[in-house]
Simulated scan of single mutants.
Amino acid sequence: MAEINVTPFVDVMLVLLIIFMVTAPLLASGVPVDLPDSRANPIDQQPDQVTISIDPTGTIFIGNERVETGGLPDALAAIDRGQAGNEPVIVLRGDRTLQYARVMAVMGELNRAGFSSISLVTNSSQSAP
């Protein structure tokens, strides 16, 4: 009588599940940014959100694509706006070592391009400032 032993199959599937659970958060953001800490409540991710990252050197990335110096207005104009009245949420990730003026300059360009829904991403913190 031939029987299929499923124990090795289950073991392999559990190992693959653990590997994917560990690597999935690393794939979500390809630009290495040391985020500041905050006690803000987490927000839900949306499928049509656009991630803009500013690395420690001040280089701007839209998604994983580097934006050339002075090319942010053109890059923002190329973003798909979707349906009327349903613009994408902009998620801004800025390194903690950046000057405030650099982040505000990017936010000013976002506002100038017509994006009014901007979320700032931080790490969660347990202690009050």
Rank of each mutant, 00 (worst) to 15 (best):
E3K: 09
I4G: 03
I4H: 06
I4V: 11
N5E: 11
V6D: 11
V6Q: 12
T7Y: 12
P8W: 05
F9D: 08
F9P: 06
V10I: 11
V10N: 07
D11W: 15
V12T: 12
L14Y: 11
L16Y: 09
L17V: 14
I18G: 10
F20E: 09
M21F: 14
T23H: 09
T23Q: 09
T23W: 09
T23L: 12
A24M: 14
A24L: 15
A24K: 09
L26F: 12
L27F: 14
L27N: 13
L27S: 13
L27V: 13
A28K: 15
G30K: 15
V31E: 00
P32S: 07
P36M: 02
D37L: 09
S38D: 15
R39H: 04
A40G: 08
A40I: 04
P42A: 08
Q45D: 04
Q46A: 14
Q46L: 15
Q46W: 10
D48R: 06
D48M: 07
Q49C: 08
Q49T: 10
Q49I: 11
T51E: 02
I54E: 01
D55P: 02
T57S: 15
T59P: 00
I60Q: 03
F61L: 01
I62E: 00
R66Q: 05
V67I: 12
V67H: 05
L72P: 01
P73C: 05
P73A: 05
D74I: 12
D74F: 10
D74W: 08
L76D: 01
L76E: 01
A78P: 07
A78S: 14
I79L: 05
R81G: 05
R81A: 11
G82M: 04
A84K: 12
G85S: 12
V89M: 07
I90K: 01
V91N: 07
V91W: 08
V91K: 08
L92E: 04
R93P: 00
D95C: 01
R96C: 06
R96D: 06
L98W: 00
Q99W: 05
Y100L: 09
A101M: 09
R102I: 01
R102P: 02
V103C: 00
V103P: 02
M104R: 14
M104E: 11
M104L: 15
A105W: 03
A105S: 13
M107T: 14
M107C: 13
E109R: 05
E109Q: 15
E109N: 08
E109F: 06
E109L: 10
L110R: 03
N111K: 15
R112F: 02
R112D: 07
G114Q: 05
G114H: 06
F115R: 05
S116T: 09
I118S: 04
L120P: 04
V121I: 11
V121N: 11
T122E: 02
T122D: 01
S127V: 13
S127G: 13
S127R: 11
A128H: 10
A128Y: 08
A128C: 07
